[in-house]
Simulated scan of single mutants.
Amino acid sequence: MYVAVKGGERAIDNAHAFLAEERRGDPAIAVLTVPQIREQLRLAVNRVMAEGSLYDPDLAALAIKQARGDLIEAVFLIRAYRTTLPRHGFSSPVETAQMHMTRRISATFKDAPGGQILGPTFDYTHRLLDFRLAADGDVPPAPTAPATQGPVPHITGFLNRDGLIETADRDDTPPPDLTREPIELPADRALRLQAITRGDEGFILSLAYSTQRGYGRTHAFVGELRIGMVEVEMDIPELGFAICIGEVELTECETVNQFKGSKTEPPQFTRGYGLTFGQTERKAIAMSLVDRALRWKELGEDFTGAPAQDEEFVLMHADNVQATGFLEHIKLPHYVDFQSELELIRKLRAEAAAASQKEAAE
């Protein structure tokens, strides 16, 4: 028994050493540094921060390096590290209308008040491989974009003036914390949004795509998509007021969706909402579509059986860390379980053979 244990430990140590060697790759090639990952693979870093629920580009870059580029493994590392951090307090709700934006677009209003800012985007590229990047050439600097001055109101607010969209009431009730308490169903919208924000981007994207193809009967327009830096404030009891403790980059998306009305509400537009760390606009858009699909009950709509409308299906399967743990545990030793299954199959085969012989004899 002890021999097997020692042999297992030695094998695991060797596997770790082999992993470190594979992570390093060819020693003749310069090692990839954490600052390089942070600055040049920013979209991967942003995804790890968003799904890991921890805003720290350096730690996210380190996790990506340690995970050899496996973003789900990197998210797992960040969440595990997050559990070791002390909690000193709670920040105030961020004011996204005060965002210093690098990108702001609307698919509903061409002449959006405050203007549209394309910013850094793949939307207008030709999706052709750029072999100049393989030559490690310097990229010419982009023209300096003017910084947004002062608050820029949300575009959906202009629909609100005419009563054409549901009112977005501000709720200052502290939301439940999904990272400290297990999710319970049915969940309120704040809890659902937390779960979707932390959810796997590919899973949320597939659900959003399904709603566009008719599984949920929602047709959305991007009312506004904005990306930029937002100040984070924290109330200091000793001072009696809030102070800025830093800035975070956020992506916010509000979608405008059709609504036929109900007995109490006239026909109007409704909202879907998405908010994530970093520049993660695909996730934010997908999140807003799934958010709207999950609101069918509060809006008095019919449940069509679509996956994106099923709260239990969405929230219980969106988390890639939980899914990975449950999936990958089946590759760990299950020798006893399998032996019992093997004995059962042999017994069933023997009984079937005996029954066949008995029928043949009769």
Score class of each variant (00 low, 15 high):
A4T: 14
A4D: 00
K6F: 10
G7H: 10
A11W: 12
N14E: 14
F18K: 12
E21Q: 11
R24N: 14
I29N: 09
P35W: 07
L43Q: 10
N46R: 00
R47K: 13
A50T: 14
L54D: 02
K65M: 10
T83S: 10
H88C: 06
S91L: 08
S92N: 12
T96W: 11
T96R: 09
T108Q: 12
I117F: 11
L118H: 09
F122S: 07
D123L: 12
T125I: 11
R132H: 13
V139D: 07
T144G: 07
A147T: 11
G150L: 09
H154E: 13
H154T: 00
N160T: 01
R161V: 14
D162A: 15
G163S: 05
L178M: 11
D188H: 04
L191D: 01
Q194F: 06
R198S: 04
R198A: 08
G199I: 01
E201G: 03
S210K: 04
G228P: 02
L250W: 03
T251L: 01
E252V: 09
E254K: 08
N257I: 04
S262C: 01
T270R: 08
T276D: 09
Q279K: 15
M287C: 04
L289Y: 09
W296Y: 12
W296P: 01
W296T: 01
E298S: 14
L299A: 07
L299I: 00
E301M: 10
E301S: 03
Q309C: 04
E312C: 05
A318E: 04
D319N: 12
E328P: 00
V336S: 13
I345A: 11
A353V: 06
S356P: 00
